[in-house]
Amino acid sequence: MSVRARREVFTELVPASIDYSRFVQPSVVVMQPTTLCNLDCAYCYLPARHRALNMLPAVARAVASSVAHWTARRRVEICWHGGEPLTLGRDYLSSLMDAFDGLDVVHSIQTNSTLITPEWSRFLLDRRVRVGVSIDGPRRSNGDRVDRAGRHAYERIHRGIRQLVGDGHEVSAIAVVSDPTPRRARSLYSFVSELGCTWLGVNIEEREGANTRRNSFISDEVVGFWAELFGEWSRQPRVRLREAQRALAYAQGVLNGQKFATSTMDPLPSVAWNGEVTLFSPELVGYSSARLGEFSCGSVLRTSLDELIRRGSRAPWVAEFLRGARRCRVSCDYFDFCGGGTAANRYFETGRMDSTETDYCRNSKKALMEGVLAHVSTIAR
């Protein structure tokens, strides 16, 4: 498909107007039970990962009180995402999870898996916790994943994942890719498949938070990375691929005549260890701007999540983000797939919320769709 043809396909699907004024009740709440991580990955965005600032049970209880009426309509996911949640120990993490007893919630956890033991694995099974792990592929691809002494963590990560898979967990993997090439795509997909993970999400390295490394890559190589990854998945769909799911869901929407963009401004409340709540981008937790003020919209210890969502939707930085989203809508052929990017990527790459194209957009949205189209084109020949 030519560039012009792709432009016409995307342009005609851009809606005439977008109503961001109504924010729905979320189905996921991200909880930061601790800032501490036992690793010191080079690309990590967390600024306080060397400090043990731990969430009090009162914060968990306040969140549970806020989501109780949400669960009357839908199941809510409580995602424990640090820091490294396992540094709290099983008893302490259990006390936080206990706050949600009796509610229709499902717990999930994102872990580097270095602390996984048979006891931890049993704990997570008994509580039916969905487990996500962070691993970037085979040993040679994990050079950025080290502990604070600079020691490589691959063997510990791999051992923990083998324990989880062997005990019957359906393990989801998140991989950070700092060298997106077709060869990298092949090795990553093969590795995750053989490891026994059931789901894979890929993050091309992003410049955000404490990570100030550049994330500009050669465009053709990034497109080739996504094309090869999509091709590997289509030939051997043993692992659910997040990016394939997103691209195919979008394509299905096009076929069904849907004329709206996927909004990246649906609330994703992220609750910091101290109860402060940030909406839309967990990566903004703990940050503020001299120009735009606090990215936190208040504390769940004093205000319900419903009110914090209403308050947050009126924040100056959100208004600036929406101005940028409107600019994206009229200038970007890929808006209907992307929905306007994410607040954290805009802010940390450009210092503003109303900027448009970012390296994140180029790497993880545009190149992704170009890669999918490239793979489909090879099949259609």
Rank of each mutant, 00 (worst) to 15 (best):
V165I: 14
G137A: 08
G168E: 08
R122I: 04
D126N: 12
G166F: 05
A185G: 11
V177A: 10
V192E: 03
F123Y: 15
R162Q: 09
A175N: 02
E119R: 08
V133Q: 01
D136V: 05
V177L: 10
R127I: 11
G143Y: 10
S141Q: 14
V133K: 00
S121I: 05
W120L: 02
R130W: 07
S190A: 13
G160E: 06
D147N: 14
R128G: 05
R162S: 06
L124E: 02
D179V: 00
V133F: 01
D147G: 05
P138D: 10
R156E: 10
T181N: 03
R130I: 13
I157C: 12
A185C: 13
V146Y: 07
G143P: 12
V171R: 00
V176L: 02
V177R: 11
S190N: 10
L124P: 03
R184S: 09
V177C: 13
S134A: 09
S193V: 04
F191M: 04
D136G: 14
G168D: 08
G132Y: 05
R128K: 14
S134L: 06
R140K: 05
I174W: 01
R139K: 15
S190E: 13
A175F: 04
P180T: 00
V133G: 01
G166Q: 02
E194W: 13
I135S: 01
G150H: 01
E119M: 05
A149R: 15
R184A: 08
G137E: 04
Y154T: 00
S134C: 07
P180S: 03
D147A: 05
G137T: 04
V171H: 02
Q163V: 09
D167Q: 15
T181W: 04
E170G: 05
S193Y: 00
H169E: 07
E170H: 08
H158Y: 09
H169D: 09
S121D: 12
S121R: 07
G168L: 04
F123N: 10
D136M: 11
G150E: 02
L188S: 11
W120K: 03
Q163T: 13
R151Y: 15
S187W: 12
G166Y: 06
R151N: 15
G132S: 13
I135D: 03
D126S: 08
S134P: 07
H152M: 10
Y154E: 00
V131S: 04
L125Q: 14
P138R: 04
R127M: 12
R151P: 12
R162F: 06
G166A: 10
S187L: 14
R139C: 15
R186I: 01
G166M: 05
I161E: 09
D167N: 15
I135Q: 00
F191C: 03
H169N: 07
A173V: 13
N142C: 13
L124I: 01
G150A: 00
A149N: 12
D167H: 15
F123K: 11
R145P: 09
A175P: 06
W120S: 03
Y154D: 04
P138C: 06
D126L: 09
